[in-house]
Design a binder for these strands. Sequence first.
DNA 1: GTACGTCAAGGATAG
DNA 2: CTATCCTTGACGTAC
Length: 309
Amino acid sequence: MIRLGYPCQNLVIPASTSHTLRLAGVSDKARVYPIVEKNLANLETILRWNAQRGIEVFRIGSSLVPFASHPLFPYDWAVEHAPRFQRLQALIRDLGHRLSMHPGQYVNPASPNPQVVEASLAELRYSARVLSLLDAKEGVLILHLGGAYGHKDATVRRFVEVLRGEQEILRFLALENDERTWTVEEVVVPAGALGVPVLVDAFHHRLNPGRLTLPAALALALPTWSGRPKIHISSQAAAKSAGAHADYIAPEDWRTLAEALNGRDADVMVEAKEKDRALFGLRRLIRHEEAQGSNCPPRASELSSGAFR
DNA sequence: GTACGTCAAGGATAG
DNA sequence: CTATCCTTGACGTAC
């Protein structure tokens, strides 16, 4: 079965989990606290909305607790928002949702700059802490390898060295290929050393395949997941630089991935600018092709159980 | 009330 | 060396 998810924002209902503030104001708890409460309340709203529509996979935006990893953050957010997190934890358990977080390009554990390493670890610990507090089953903390610093072997060694022993991070961590520096084949190395799974981004792979076809990349990556594998899909925005995300998923990109998956289970994150609306678009496409009987027909067992949803 | 300039952070690359 | 791109909304000041 394929489950679809979407990242960070719901564009249909007015519930944002990304309210933030300027760094200049962060030491004022009276300002920060209500923003975090609002984000957490909106997360609950979004998850309930998702559940009503059969969406069980969602990525939480990094500014759920804005500046949580910054030294100036004024209080122990994990303790002081514990009631909210407990509510969410119960809800997520009841709904059976799978949640993820995906820190941005500033997180570079292999950086030669110790301050960047420390800030990166702080951000990763924060993200893992959120997933822990939500008791996220099969939660995933997705990370790119980051900069190559001109010497990939040494960079991979530093990356592994820095993260080895970070138990809470490693509990959720998955490593993702990117569109210009690290291929799936290269990501497999540190992932194996750390004992974490490899997340294939099909769009990044198309732009930066290295020596592997998509089926070969999946053959390497899917077995690294003990449960359901996660995969990212997106399409090229027309008339923009290579790698820019399109509003929706192009049918051809879905077909390529579906063919490569060849009936295997996966949770597919729809990385499109139109977020949840793009998810519904892809869902319609899948149902349409399912009804038509494509060149990659679903198995009979999947059809009977409402496989694609 | 709206418009729009600006915002923590890194790295790669084009110019 | 500098600007720009990834992506990115949302804040907050100026009007």
